[in-house]
Design a protein around this nucleic acid. Structure first.
Lengths: 195, 195
DNA sequence: AGAATGAATAATCAAGTAAATATTCACAAA
DNA sequence: TTTGTGAATATTTACTTGATTATTCATTCT
């Protein structure tokens, strides 16, 4: 890995800790720089501005999630139903962990959602792609009958939207969320089954 | 109708126009009073405070929606599937109209959601009750097989949550929303069918 | 050259004050 | 007795201005 890329990672990690713990506005460039052992002005050699650090942090976070989901697609011996459920539950767990452990997660999500909906959309599309792969697999092995794969995947993502939005998860225990997600997916898959 | 109740309605209607057009904070008690042809201090003879006007306005709005839904339950000659779809689409249309025609609807919803989630919860429960009635009907006539009626209704409401949240409807056309809602409900109902 | 810095400038935030608004109250009209 | 009002008070908002922070830049270091 290039030295330059290493420094960028160090900065993103330092910023991430501060942003999620204290919030974006309450974190100063000087603090991030101090955590990295450099001056504030030097941060600008690696990132355009403070917002840019947040954006790249978010994209990295989304990329990690997407990799998790792709890993689930590669697991052997799962039915399409099981795979779709695993995808949604994985996203749910990642979100739940963040809500539980990172005080300012909600604030950061709201900020990104309102200011950079394009990034959120791209992530949502990646999610739909993963679900689509599982649906396609279900079609191939005769478990499902979904003529329009992407439309079906999009439908599934919309029906499970509350497990990807921290705001909507508020007030439910992890158990309740898992149960609800499971019931929705099992009913949907049952409705998509080849008869 | 009592004179007192008539005045309360006049005040709520005047406030409603202002709140939805200019927002809660940008509307002054003096303006509401002027629209009603009375002094600001007289408003307090009918409502505890400004917040109270908003709350009663919201409850009235929710009650109207709930009456619409109950009316759908009384329509003759519909299958359970059709009735559930009609319920969700009705709520979707009401929300869509508000978003399209009332500039500050979103702001008001956010405010009520954060400050008085109890009211929103009660409305959500009423919605689930209506869906539950349709599910029960489906069970009776053999169209559906849902052992736990309320749990099933709750599941349906969670899977269609995006059509009840203005925030999540942002960026979709009415047609797209209707299509998505229809597809989700038809798939769910198919999954609940007696086999 | 590229990496890094402290000082300079620009933008944003925060404390304090003035103005606007919400709410109360003593009293009048119906 | 209920509806109503204008004046008085309490609260909130808007606006200054001083302080903090983001960003740029000229310069040093390697």
């Amino acid at each position: 890995m290039g030295k330059n890329e290493e420094t960028r990672e160090l900065i993103i990690d330092s910023a991430r800790n501060r942003f999620l713990q204290y919030g974006f506005n309450k974190t100063t460039m000087a603090e991030i720089a101090k955590d990295c052992g450099m001056s504030a002005s030097n941060l600008y050699r690696f990132f355009k501005d403070k917002n840019d650090i947040l954006v790249e942090m978010t994209e990295r976070c989304f990329r990690d999630t997407e990799n998790c989901l792709r890993e689930i697609l590669r697991r052997p011996g799962m039915s399409a139903a099981e795979r779709i459920k695993a995808l949604v539950l994985e996203k749910l767990h990642i979100n739940y962990d963040m809500i539980a452990n990172e005080p300012k997660f909600n604030e950061i999500v709201m900020y990104i959602t309102s200011e950079r909906s394009d990034i959120v959309c791209r992530h949502k599309d990646a999610l739909i792609s993963s679900i689509a792969e599982a649906v396609a697999e279900g079609n191939r092995n005769g478990e499902l009958e979904a003529p329009d794969i992407v439309k079906t995947a999009d439908m599934i993502s919309k029906a499970t939207i509350m497990f990807g939005h921290p705001m909507l998860m508020n007030g439910y225990s992890l158990q309740e969320l898992e149960d609800s997600a499971t019931e929705i997916i099992e009913t949907l898959v049952q409705g998509l089954r080849r008869r």
